[in-house]
Amino acid sequence: MDEKLAPLPLRMIRHYNIAVPPSVPPLLSTTFSVIRQGDWEGHTIAVKQVRVYGAAGVVSRIKEDVLNAFKSTPENIFPSTHPDNGIMPLCLVQSIDKLPFVTFISPWMENGSVLDYVAKGCSRVEKLSLILQVARALKLLHENNIVHGNICPGNILITDLGEAVITDCGMRTILSHIFTNVIDRYSAPECVFNFERAELTTMSDVWSFGCVAMELLLEIKPFSACHTDAEIAISLHEQRAPFGNTLMPTVKGSLERLWDILVACFDYNPEARPDMKTLYSNMIQWVEMFK
């Protein structure tokens, strides 16, 4: 086990235990969140602040709702939420301030995201190993009836040992008070076109996993020809495949079977997609043949 991942608690900590130097600029700042490097009792951590929009009373109520949702998260998540299982601990920071943020922390990963890591140079075998590690971790979550809700390259980090871990586990569900439908390249169609609330299920996780796995193998983003959210939404509405329907030259030969396994993730009928247990089993069998 990577010892740097062990010290964080699994539930909640008080805001005054965290130090974030105000002079240090954010590592990432988007419409929805800000990520900074911080310190918790001598351990380097990632501090993610999710923006909450609204009047002061609305912000306070939403933050209280999120806190209650986190407290009510089933206890069975915690045996599986461990880096040995490929799942990063997620910790909510309890705060009494009125700032418009909900704050989470997780261990700091020097290697960054999976895309940062493979960009430095990874063999195909190493990429396949990372994909299998993600599949195993997601299978474990689903076996515990836990939906991740936001599988994407930015939520797959690499430890000092070069192993993939899933982060932000369940955050999208916990923050359902803040987020409704978000269009991105990794969202399953049922999450985009349910206009009342994004329909997050294990099958929507399967779609997103397929997108990430294909991107790692092909080094092409899903819906790569789309440059705006509107174009992605149109592609989903027209039920186009994220990576096209034609076998790409880069995966011909020994990778054709893997292509077939992953393409099954993109069925527009969620119930027709394979579950993660089946996917992982099929991929393991293929790897054994590939060897």
Score class of each variant (00 low, 15 high):
Ile183Met: 09
Pro79Gly: 05
His177Arg: 08
Asp205Met: 07
Ala225Pro: 00
Phe78Met: 07
Leu130Cys: 08
Arg185Trp: 01
Asn17Gln: 13
Gly210Lys: 07
Val125Pro: 00
Ala233Tyr: 09
Pro83Cys: 12
Arg172His: 10
Ile87Asp: 02
Glu288His: 15
Leu161Trp: 05
Met109Asn: 08
Arg14Cys: 11
Val165Thr: 08
Ile62Ser: 02
Asn111Leu: 06
Val59Met: 11
Asn76Val: 03
Val50Lys: 00
Val66Ile: 14
Thr202Phe: 11
Leu218Asn: 01
Phe193Pro: 02
Phe70Asp: 01
Val50Phe: 15
Glu110Thr: 07
Glu126Met: 11
Leu175Asp: 01
Gln49Phe: 03
Met283Cys: 11
Cys169Ser: 12
Asn194Gly: 00
Leu255Arg: 13
Glu3Asn: 07
Val212Met: 04
Ser204Ile: 00
Tyr280Gly: 00
Leu247Ser: 03
Ser235Asn: 10
Cys91Leu: 13
Ser208Val: 00
Arg273Gly: 06
Glu126Gly: 06
Leu175Gly: 00
Arg36Asn: 12
Phe243Gln: 07
Glu3Gly: 00
Glu143Arg: 10
Leu130Gln: 04
Pro242Leu: 13
Ala69Gly: 09
Ser60Leu: 11
Ser123Asp: 07
Gly210Trp: 05
Ala19Ser: 15
Val134Arg: 04
Asn17Glu: 13
Asn68Pro: 00
Ile151His: 08
Ile234Arg: 13
His227Gly: 06
Met289Leu: 14
Lys252Cys: 14
Tyr117Ile: 02
Ala6Asn: 09
Phe32Glu: 12
His227Val: 01
Ala164Met: 02
Gln285Trp: 13
Gln94Thr: 10
Ser29Thr: 05
His227Phe: 11
Lys98Gly: 06
Gly149Cys: 06
Pro79Val: 05
Leu27Asn: 06
Leu99Val: 03
Phe70Ala: 04
Ser281Cys: 09
Ser187Glu: 00
Lys98His: 12
Asn150Ala: 14
Leu132Ala: 11
Ile234Pro: 04
Lys98Ser: 13
Met214Leu: 10
Pro249Gly: 12
Gly253Phe: 14
Pro83Met: 08
Asp229Arg: 13
Trp108Asp: 02
Ala272Ile: 02
Trp207Gln: 01
Asn68Tyr: 08
Val50Trp: 08
Gly112Tyr: 14
Gln133Ile: 02
Tyr53His: 07
Ser224Pro: 00
Met203Gly: 01
Val58His: 15
Pro274Phe: 13
Val182Lys: 06
Phe32Asn: 11
Leu141Gly: 04
Asn194Val: 00
Thr228Ala: 07
Ser113Ala: 03
Thr159Glu: 01
Met248Tyr: 05
Asn269Glu: 15
Ala241Leu: 15
Ala198His: 01
Pro100Ser: 03
Glu271Val: 09
Ala6Cys: 04
Glu271Ser: 14
Phe32His: 13
His148Ala: 03
Glu231Gln: 15
Pro74Ser: 12
Ser129Gln: 14
Ile151Leu: 12
Gly38Tyr: 11
Asp267Trp: 10
Gly54His: 09
Asn145Cys: 06
Ile220Val: 10
Leu90Arg: 09
Gly57Gln: 08
Val102Ala: 10
Phe70Arg: 06
Ser129Asp: 12
Thr103Met: 10
Tyr16Asp: 15
Arg14Met: 12
Ile35Arg: 09
Asn68Trp: 06
Gly86Tyr: 06
